[in-house]
Design a binder for these strands. Structure first.
Length: 590
RNA sequence: GCCGACUUAGCACAAUUGGCAGUGCAACUGAUUUGUAAUCAGUAGGUUGUAGGUUCAAGUCCUAUAGUCGGCACCA
């Protein structure tokens, strides 16, 4: 297919490339604007770019529009598209441009920032200020859908006026569009807020917006995750600590949080003194470090804490378990010597890999380096640290990319971006080198010469927030948890309550005594009904007991989402279950 | 916080221009005793988010407020 690029050249590109998708979507956003300009002559246009999964256009409407209006706009778009309007690129000077867009303050603002010639695109009577690239005509634009309306600040600045943003998506054929719409449906079905309700995992009360309540089923998942977390940390020689939720103002002033983040901290007065609920665990960890003198021989010290933190997030930011006002960080702080840094980073990369593998979450790493201006610390240490992070990445053989200048002001960092089963990316893990706090808190260890030396401090979280991570897992697994996490691992169904119930009761007792989470369904319903229930509740293993099983001391079981059943002895079943839990196996019938 | 929408039984949703608040699932009772995704019948369940207003009459219209959702801004 042919496109006009930003230089005005006509190029041939592959229709199945992401570039082609972007050009199509960008041109569809112009088509949207054209339709809107006909239906709403007063509307003024802002930006209308292509984005990862489609496009949007920011529009200043005189009167607010509603979802129902999208249907009309869509109709108009299709009508225009079918005329196969030519998309024409032109260059004009600033004066001409200002004349063309004289009624649009947004475009005028942009024009005044451009040096030299200005590119415009014309289709029919509609003209837009735009660099391109675009399709040559509206001919290829047929399979699109307007998805939603939202508010968005002009130029992404909350001091500016809020415009109306229309989101949409556009594909080259009907099938691809339908596939994408199906993925959107699947994401909706697997929404952790919905599944959390259906499976009784957690709740959020209007009496505590952003403060989730964990229900029994959710606690089983959380505790299983926490057990695994402890196991991993023991393996990697971590100490475990717990630091207070409330600490005094002076501490937060020393750490710098009081000045930087006070608006997002919950503060309180106790006996006339200011305190704050902790938004981070680091200062607490540092106090523990400073509780005693340290020799260079003691390092590295790896201190882990599942710290419950509170942050006053804006009301509009709250979102299920993904964005909450209190959450548990799987936090750890590593204090080490300069010469230990590389091996510590290497070990962390291994540690993170171990964790993510268990959940079948592929990931890539991003290295964020020193900011241009606002940074503290020695430039030599920055360079050395960045070099060490890079070396560790290279030796790990992991895929990574560099975000130049995107580091924290106090040090470079590695971010771990996980991809879930529905193709979405989540940042969970982070490793941050800190050249700020050790200094502010006057931390030290005694080196081999008896001198006081400042330790290197690493902050790291692997899962990020347990709440958020469980939210991600709920959606990633679609609520069908592997047995090691599942609230109920085994559902036992007697075929006939008169003849098989006693055997089932004994079996239930036996499995429970072995530590398995078992449910006995003795309701007077048809087997097919109970079986359906078991599947709807997404229980990993369902056992059916009838005459044959009782006679032979066997069980017949099937795994979640699989149709076929297996008949084995009770002991064999226990073995299978034990193995599946130990291996953290996830049943998924593709 | 900002823009827009939404809030009806435990859950998912109905209720025409303002005119008797309903359906399905779940729960409970009874019958049924079931071999791999929904057996039948019955019972109960509500200050329609909250507070106020308009009206003979409000789930429906108006005002305020809380919460939720889609985004934006924010995210140490």
């Amino acid at each position: 297919m042919k496109i006009i690029n930003q230089k005005g050249e006509i190029l041939e590109i592959k229709k199945d490339s992401h570039e082609a998708f972007e050009v199509l979507n960008h041109s569809t956003s112009h088509l949207l604007a054209q339709a809107v300009s006909i239906l709403y002559p007063d509307a003024k246009f802002g930006f209308g770019p292509a984005i990862e999964e489609g496009f949007y256009y920011d529009i200043d409407f005189k009167e607010p529009i509603s979802d129902a209006d999208l249907i009309n706009i869509e109709k108009k778009m299709l009508e225009i598209a079918k005329t196969n309007e030519k998309i024409i690129r032109e260059e004009v000077n600033k004066k001409q441009a200002l004349k063309i867009f004289k009624d649009n303050p947004y475009k005028i603002e942009l024009i005044n920032e451009i040096e030299g010639m200005i590119t415009i695109f014309r289709q029919g009577d509609f003209i837009d200020l735009c660099a391109g690239p675009h399709l040559l005509s509206t001919e290829l634009i047929r399979h699109f859908k307007l998805l939603s309306i939202a508010g968005a600040y002009w130029r992404g600045d909350s001091k500016n006026k809020m415009l109306t943003r229309i989101y949409g998506t556009s594909y080259f054929n009907r099938q691809d569009l339908d596939d994408y719409l199906n993925i959107l449906e699947e994401r909706k079905r697997n929404d952790h807020r919905l599944l959390g309700k259906q499976l009784n995992l957690f709740m959020i009360s209007e009496f505590g917006p952003g403060f989730p309540f964990w229900l029994n089923n959710g606690m089983i998942i959380k505790n299983s995750l926490v057990d695994f977390w402890h196991e991993q940390h023991r393996k990697y020689d971590y100490q475990f600590i717990e630091t207070p939720i409330i600490l005094s103002r002076e501490l937060w002033e020393t750490s710098g949080h009081w000045d930087h983040y006070r608006d997002n901290m919950y503060t309180l007065k106790i006996d006339g003194k200011d305190f704050a609920v902790k938004p981070m665990n680091c200062p607490g960890s540092i106090l523990v470090y400073k509780n005693e003198m340290h020799s260079y021989r003691d390092l590295p010290i790896r201190m882990a804490e599942l710290g419950k933190v509170h942050r006053h997030e804006a009301s509009g930011a709250l979102n299920g378990l993904f964005r909450v006002r209190t959450f548990t960080q799987d936090d750890a702080h590593i204090y080490c010597r300069r010469d230990q840094l590389l091996s510590e980073i290497n070990t962390l990369l291994k540690f993170f890999d171990d964790m993510y593998k268990v959940f079948e979450l592929p990931y890539h790493i991003e290295l964020s380096t020193r900011p241009e201006k606002d940074y503290i610390g020695d430039i030599e240490i920055w360079n050395e640290s960045e070099e060490i992070l890079k070396q560790a990445l290279i030796s790990s053989g992991k895929e990574y990319k560099i975000n130049p200048g995107d580091g924290a002001f106090y040090g470079p960092k590695l971010d771990f971006k996980l991809k879930d089963s529905m193709g979405r990316i989540w940042q969970c893990g982070t490793i941050q080198l800190d050249m700020n706090l050790p200094h502010r808190f006057e931390m030290s260890y005694i080196d081999e010469n008896g001198e006081k030396v400042e330790p290197i401090m690493l902050h790291r979280a692997c899962l990020g927030s347990l709440e958020r991570f469980i939210g991600i897992l709920i959606e990633h697994y679609g609520g069908a948890f592997p047995a090691w996490l599942a609230p109920i691992q085994v559902d036992i169904l007697p075929v006939n309550n008169n003849y098989h119930l006693d055997y089932c009761k004994q079996l239930t007792k036996k499995l429970k005594n072995l530590g398995f989470r078992v449910n006995l369904d003795d309701s007077n319903e048809k087997l097919s009904y109970r079986l359906r229930n078991s599947q709807v509740k997404k229980i990993p293993l369902t056992i059916v007991i009838g005459d044959n099983e009782v006679k032979e001391n066997q069980v017949t079981f099937r795994r979640y989402s699989f149709k076929e059943s297996h008949t084995v002895s009770v002991d064999e079943f226990v073995q299978i279950l034990t193995e599946d839990i130990k291996n953290k196996k996830h049943y998924k019938n593709k």
